[in-house]
């Protein structure tokens, strides 16, 4: 996991997909690809009322990203200072090994450029001191950007554990 993470408050999320659209708009992602996605889980009746969870699925920026290991050209890179995993598009040849490798479905195929691209936590915005577009645009402020200064390593580990339930390793 990277130094950062995006916390999603299930109580606040309404599944409106503003995160997806803000992300696509900010990153000019063509139709067909998505850096993040809301996956509704439910409805499932709890205490008499059907409840639903909207699971926000961006890239989780693994500690040991398989996409990086699988990349034959070094295009998929993990930034050492903060662990953000992103694609150097000048190196990508479009072999999609990263897409095959990633258990999360994070790397995306850009059919217009013939290259892979993916969630990089809007690192250009991060580097300017802003937050990722999904977080900034979230209709109900359900998404929260957690930077290293705001989070203890314990908290991050807890988050990582939650995320990786059922995942082989991450």
């Amino acid at each position: 996991m990277s130094e950062y993470y995006i916390y999603q408050d299930q109580k606040r999320c309404i599944g409106c997909r503003a995160c997806e659209v803000h992300c696509k708009t900010k990153n000019d992602v063509p139709v067909g690809a998505s850096f993040c996605k809301i996956i509704p889980v439910g409805p499932k009746v709890q205490d008499g009322i059907p409840r639903i969870k909207f699971i926000f699925m961006p890239c989780f920026h693994c500690e040991t990203p398989w996409c990086v290991s699988a990349c034959p050209t070094g295009a998929m890179q993990r930034r050492t200072e903060d662990g953000i995993v992103s694609v150097d598009k000048s190196l990508c040849i479009g072999c999609k090994a990263c897409i095959t490798a990633c258990p999360w479905g994070s790397p995306q195929w850009n059919k217009e450029t013939g290259r892979v691209f993916k969630c990089d936590y809007c690192k250009d915005r991060i580097d300017e001191g802003l937050e990722p577009a999904c977080v900034t645009g979230c209709t109900t402020a359900a998404l929260k950007w957690v930077s290293p200064s705001e989070s203890s390593s314990l908290k991050r580990e807890k988050f990582a554990k939650k995320i990786t339930q059922g995942a082989p390793t991450s």
């Binding site: 996956i39 889980v41 699971i55 999360w104 479905g105 994070s106 790397p107």
Partner: peptide, 16 residues
């Protein structure tokens, strides 16, 4: 496939 991987992971994250 990559779309279904996302779905699968999302469900597993909440134990479903």
């Amino acid at each position: 496939c990559q779309d279904c991987k996302r779905i699968s992971k999302a469900f597993k994250m909440v134990g479903e």
